[in-house]
Design a protein around this nucleic acid. Structure first.
Lengths: 208, 208
DNA sequence: AGATCTTGTGGACGCTGTCAACATGTGGGG
DNA sequence: CCCCACATGTTGACAGCGTCCACAAGATCT
């Protein structure tokens, strides 16, 4: 099970397959993760992957988890950049905006990885067990929840309104990402995108 | 160009291909639109479609337009159900909520069609020319814009805040739909989904 | 050393989209 | 009316894909 014994036939194929698939996903999204091409890039025959993954979907799932991890890491980084020392309501709101901004930034700068992160094959559960988790051990949703908690504490928002706020915020940035990436907004010129994001974050912050 | 001359070899194949593809899309989403299976269902050989569509993507695009039209129609219907006679700010807001609700309703009741509506192949422009338009001649975005205009007029919201509001609202319902459909929220039990939608619409309405 | 399990290979099958060559039905000009 | 040109549909082929099966070879255990 542990993929880290470098003393077998190939060494540690499993990792290399994931790495090769990740590169394909980066360039062409989830559909570009082609089993035979992955094997080719790893330098093995077209069937070797079946010793490490039940089928293509199983490999894809592993790659999706890595993509989700990258997303979580960018969110963590952008939150940290606000400055850990800053306190108060303004800082909490700035971190919340950074969280949403990082989400859309990831979608636009790594479109292939973003699309792959959410291309988990049906039947393979999404939130398994510490998969797709950033350096802080939290997944994207949990990171967002933490920032919302901070805003609630710092801004004194009505407690009963906290319920499900994470899903409203998440949906917004996710939807904007999808629409810009592969939806009808993909023809929006680059210069206008920031305005859309700003307007979106304004709306959510006001509506919390 | 007009597909309605019932006096040729097959009659009007083009339409039947789209119809057959639509059924496949309804059951299995865009990936289920398989050229050979479409031809099979239309009762023609596997290559007949090439006389009406340049390639699979071209056929898929036509199917996507039909899906978008269905979405627009459901939005129109739900808006009309609010009651055309009702006037004032409350009515305008009710219609706006109906618009967003219809969007998510369509995604959940016709998941295959919804996913197909946004699976327009890259390279084939999204908003061509009166495609994917409802009975009122408006596409989903334009319908949403009209409802937002009504709210602005009826509620006297600050005019400078009108800019890009449609994209914030659209992103929200689109994101929720995607997350519930094929995203990490697809395991949310049916009973809790309405709460998420309500919270989302509340947030948007407050934040406009 | 020899048995056994794990890992990788080679070949096959049916599926897909697409291309080229061929067949057939339709409509118009002599 | 006939024949020609064109539009439409068919047949056959090709490469690429995921997957299954039988086999080979390296690693591990006794």
């Amino acid at each position: 099970m542990t993929p880290s014994k470098p003393t077998y036939h190939h060494g540690n194929l499993r990792s290399e397959l994931i790495e090769a698939g990740l590169q394909l996903a980066r360039d062409g999204g989830p559909d570009a993760v082609v089993l035979r091409e992955v094997s080719r890039r790893a330098g093995v025959s077209h069937n070797a992957a079946y010793r490490h993954f039940a089928d293509r979907d199983s490999l894809l799932k592993a790659i999706c988890d890595r993509c989700m991890r990258s997303l979580a890491q960018l969110m963590e980084r952008r939150i940290a950049e606000v400055g850990p020392a800053r306190r108060g309501a303004a800082a909490a709101r700035a971190r919340l905006r950074a969280t949403g901004g990082a989400y859309v930034e990831f979608a636009l700068t790594e479109p292939g990885l973003f699309r792959t992160a959410f291309a988990v094959p049906p039947g393979l559960g999404y939130l398994e067990e510490d998969e797709g988790v950033g350096d802080g051990g939290l997944g994207p949703l949990e990171i967002l929840q933490a920032q919302l908690d901070s805003v609630w504490v710092a801004s004194g928002l009505p407690r009963e309104r906290r319920a499900n706020a994470e899903f409203a915020a998440w949906s917004s940035v996710h939807g904007l990402s999808m629409l810009l990436l592969e939806g009808p907004l993909r023809e929006v010129p680059e210069g206008e995108r920031d305005a859309l994001l700003t307007r979106l974050l304004d709306t959510i912050e006001r509506g919390l």
